[in-house]
Amino acid sequence: MKSIEQIVLTAALELLKNDECGWLCTVVKTFGASPRPLGSMLLLSGSGAVTGSLSGGCIEDELLEKLQRGELAKLQPEMLEYGVSAEENERFGLPCGGRMQILVEPLTASAELCFMLSDLCEALDTRLAKRRRVDLHSGQWQLEDVSRCEPLTIRDDVLIQDFGPRYRLLLIGANELARCISEIALAMDYRVVVCDPREDRREQWSVSGAELNASMPDEAVSEFADPYTAVITLTHDPRIDDMALMQALTEPLFYVGALGSERTSAKRRARLKLLDISDEQIDRLHAPVGLAIGSKSAMEIAVAIMAQLTQLRFLESQNKIDAGDV
């Protein structure tokens, strides 16, 4: 399953390969509440085909009407703003007070642009990160490699937009909780891998879209470890969970969590310390896993876990914006 960015960029590449024109539309600024986050993308072809999304459909309809009237930018990027009045908020389905700025970039076939789109698609396929710089006057692109994605920004009339791999969730243990987490995570565009060395547990697995992995837990963690991966242990079996955690806490992972009560988590931390895992590494462990929302059922725990991942990703992006690290 590809991310929406991969789908949009791939569609743009195919469009240009067929010598067709199109428009790449990107949410570049939001004010107040907005229906789509910063960086959301849409491709509009010359024939009116739409790939991606910017709103609940009303902004897409407005862009199609502009296309039919011949009002979309033809040579240089154009900035459009939606939601500047209460009437527009209602018309475009924006939350009260919400405003969005959309950058509309005309795309025409050229060897250089096709090469850069191909480079972006290949980077996303291989879980590498790329930065796109767009001159807002000329529309010219520049690409560069980056080690970590930063939030989209506009600086000195240049759009700076990073593209990175989809976040990945490695779950240790193919059980009912893993099923609930997988279903939510897949709907939230995570790539989900479920590792369980026990054949009988793998045979019972039935979530379409989640990949099964039969490796030993430490080997699976080592294979998938990168800054866009979260590892969560779910088996309640220290022989399996601790093996995964020993490896996970030494890797540059986005998140490491373990299922268990406060008492179980304290015992787990004590065991890890005896296994030469440092205090600093152990401090990275989220245990009990998930936000403390009083969850009891498997689906409630899954909601708490995915809510915590969402919160941490949001806080990380906000900290980068506040620090001016882009």
Rank of each mutant, 00 (worst) to 15 (best):
E219W: 01
R284N: 07
Q140M: 12
G173L: 06
E65G: 15
T10Q: 08
D283I: 06
R36W: 02
G324M: 06
L285C: 02
G139R: 06
F254R: 13
D145I: 12
L42G: 10
E199I: 04
C195E: 07
S208R: 13
R198K: 09
F254S: 06
S110R: 09
P288F: 02
A129Q: 07
A123T: 10
K74M: 13
S222Y: 12
R191V: 15
V146T: 07
C25R: 12
V84F: 11
D226F: 05
I321Y: 08
T153A: 14
T108Q: 15
A11S: 11
A323T: 03
D276T: 07
M1T: 13
D283C: 08
P252D: 05
C195K: 01
S261Q: 08
E122G: 10
Q308V: 00
N18E: 15
L63D: 11
A33C: 12
E176S: 05
A220W: 07
E203L: 11
L171D: 06
L169P: 02
I321E: 15
A123P: 03
T310R: 02
K29H: 12
Y167E: 10
P106A: 05
D325W: 13
I293Q: 02
V27H: 10
C58Y: 08
A174Q: 02
A307I: 06
A86R: 15
A178L: 02
M41R: 15
A323F: 08
E176L: 10
L107M: 02
